[in-house]
């Protein structure tokens, strides 16, 4: 059995069996060639990573990424999605904020924060992720706030209007093993956000520059996958049985961690070790089975 076969089972454990993830990725106007090319490359990479997680992906770039096509794509996403599904939206490009209205820069009329909010509000999925890798994107955090939706913005507010480097580090997060802090072989939205925030901070520090952007996460922390670091394959029956046992052990570990403060520390670690040793054996059997 492939050493990564178990990865698919994690998704099974986290999501309802019938849940589907649908992702819309958009790159907006670059203005200058270097930006246009960079935004498209970022969008294509993000789309590729999303496909690796098993998501259905719609990619809009260049002249195809207009106010109308974005509206229509979201409407279509809403039409085919159910409440138990997951909706993910990535916007790469330039954003502007005039003190009242945020605009995502695309060819033709720009969609505003109000429009984006309305279009997203029509989506049925209870769990949503919106990643806005643009200047001034912090202005979107409040308007897009909604129960079950995580909004990740490149800037703290609409007043941070310089072109952002957030997207470059977001892309790095989708590929870096160190972004996968829970070591489940995939990168979740919150993991990617933390990796990117730290990298952006280091970027400015290392160059002795004043930070012109401060990434922001609004809403619940999210385990929605944005990237899978290893390939997955379909598990066989034995692997499914082992994975189910692994899920039970993990649940026990999570419960134990919640009780940590009320336990003697030695007793806590003794019990943790017991569970982890069993988990290690299960993991080894899974690996051997491949």
């Amino acid at each position: 059995m492939s050493r990564v076969a178990w990865l698919s089972l994690l998704v099974v454990a986290v999501l309802p069996a019938s849940a589907a993830t649908r992702t819309l990725v958009v790159s907006g106007l670059g203005g200058e060639t270097q930006y246009a090319e960079a935004f498209e490359a970022l969008a294509e990479s993000a789309a590729q990573s999303a496909r690796g997680t098993g998501a259905e992906v719609t990619l809009l770039t260049g002249a195809d990424a207009t106010r109308e096509t974005i509206r229509d794509a979201l409407a279509e996403l809403g039409r085919i999605s159910a409440e138990e599904d997951v909706a993910v939206v990535h916007l790469f490009g330039h954003g502007t904020y005039d003190g009242e209205t945020f605009r995502f820069n695309v060819p033709g009329p720009d969609p505003t924060d109000g429009e984006l909010s309305d279009w997203l509000a029509a989506l049925p999925p209870a769990r949503q992720l919106v990643v806005v890798a643009t200047s001034a994107s912090g202005a979107l955090a409040e308007p897009l706030r909604r129960e079950g939706r995580t909004v990740i913005a490149a800037t703290r507010s609409g007043t941070e209007q310089s072109a952002v480097i957030f997207g470059d580090y977001w892309l790095e997060a989708l590929r870096a093993p160190s972004a996968d802090t829970n070591k489940d072989g995939a990168v979740g939205a919150t993991e990617a956000f933390r990796f990117t925030s730290a990298a952006v901070e280091r970027h400015f520090e290392a160059r002795g520059l004043m930070a012109t952007e401060h990434p922001r996460l609004e809403g619940p922390e999210s385990g929605i996958l944005v990237s899978r670091l290893e390939l997955e394959r379909l598990p066989d029956a034995n692997a499914r049985r082992l994975a189910a046992r692994r899920a039970e052990i993990e649940e026990a570990i999570a419960g134990l961690r919640e009780e940590k403060d009320s336990l003697e520390i030695d007793a806590y670690f003794a019990r943790l070790q017991e569970l982890l040793l069993e988990l290690a054996v299960v993991e080894r059997e899974l690996a051997d089975g491949s």
Binding site: N182, K183, G185, E283
Partner: peptide
């Protein structure tokens, strides 16, 4: 492993 139980 307390942080990342699946850390193979």
């Amino acid at each position: 492993l307390e942080i990342a139980p699946r850390f193979r």
